[in-house]
Nucleic acid binder design. Sequence first.
RNA 1: UCCUCUGUAGCUCAGUUGGGAGAGCAGGCGGCUGUUAACCGCCGGGUCGUAGGUUCGAGUCCUACCGGAGGAGCCA
Length: 472
Amino acid sequence: MSGQDGIVDAPWISAAQARNAEHIGREIEVRGWVRTRRDSKGGFSFVELNDGSCFGNLQIIAESSLPNYQADIHNLSAGSSIVARGIVQASQGGGQATELLAKQIRVLGIADPQDYPLQKKRHTLEKLREWAHLRPRTNTFGALTRVRNRLSQSVHQFFQEQGFYYINTPIITASDCEGAGQMFRVTTLPLDHLPLEKGKVDFSKDFFGKSSYLTVSGQLEAEIYATALGRVYTFGPTFRAENSNTSRHLAEFWMIEPEAAFFDLQDNMLLAEKFIKRLLRDLLDSCGEDMAFFEERIQPGVIASLRQVMEKPFEHLTYSDAIEILNSSGEKFEYPHAWGCDLQAEHERYLTEKHVRGPLVLYNYPKSIKPFYMRCNDDGRTVAAMDVLVPNVGEIIGGSQREERLDVLLSRLNEMQLQAEDYWWYIELRKFGTVPHSGFGLGFERVVQWVTGLGNIRDCIPFPRTPGSAEF
RNA sequence: UCCUCUGUAGCUCAGUUGGGAGAGCAGGCGGCUGUUAACCGCCGGGUCGUAGGUUCGAGUCCUACCGGAGGAGCCA
């Protein structure tokens, strides 16, 4: 969107560029939305414009000699859209390097302050959720959007540099055997007139000839590609129909799932750590203004804590050691933490927030509490699983080395009373040229929540989908 | 799904043992010779979430439902 790239009319530049002192003296044009207007005692106005290009606003000086000053400019209010042309000059006031002395201001659309919900003052995040069509115009969601974008870019850059191929796994899946929780059914059957067969719905009449659902994970399909091309990753939407009402759950969220052939659990854990550190480094390097806002207004201390994470190696603990630490912690827990039980939120919180005070990689979980595809360890009672936990948010990564031994996989399916036929293609990957391989899933919004310090995951995605809520 | 809290003006909230609704901000008008979230004055604005019930009388008490928040479970 700059004037130099040849895409748009030469004088049009971004507010981010216009705020830079190197443009002083140039005649330029900016296009965006008014954040606020202040009238000077001298009979002219300061109009602050934001076009999304950066956190800060461009201050525009609108003198009363402009032909439409009284009619338009003097009444400009937050949310109005304008095109302003003028000369960039050094700012006479503090707080910004430059300002635009307007030669012309064209008002494209006014936002009537009587009706426009966003005020100059602070709104609660809960209220802004009701205005998801307007909240990107606020400082918080502008910053959030740029942070999300930067993280997305880093995801691709990191995996591309590490030799991973970006693949697209299906959104619609025709098997209900993924076992990762409640799924949303996809159907074209008439719900008021379902075809029945012996009293049950006849899904052979459905669009795909069988039951189909929205995906809860692209992992199994990613394994197909990993065992052909070596290293792959997905970055796509994921759907969970669980009725969970918390600040950490969404019914629709974005997940990144790398899968790598010839990676064992150690390689997998190292990959996860390098990946997270890369995300943090890029974020802190290139989203300074936005992160400074989160630091100042959302969670003081967040930047320092992220820096610390970047500099130190992650702590690693086996599940068994974690249980030992909980046992000898002297801490009072509401839930028990015996070996073989899944760790409760309070346990994870103790481990990350009090014991290690930073990210923690837990691995080698009891096989009884983990899915069939995780690789069985030699001790006969644990699997090569690993989770990455971080303070405040909890689990952001769950992964494992996958069971590559055909006989072991078959007996695990049998143990868990799953039908081998349902997994015929998954099993064939082990029949034909099987290799050790590993992967993990990282919840994108959880990372956003962690790095911004936002308390509720519903504010970490543009349009949150939660039980009872799919507005916009 | 469970537990707890909550729903009063555009926004944030106050409203005392049930007696007829208030403040700040925002907005409108006016004033103020460069300002950078709340300079001064005046003005307008509310079926007190919805539906029942108790009572002479309900924002206030009771019941149900709906929305929101925090925590739990499930998970990423």
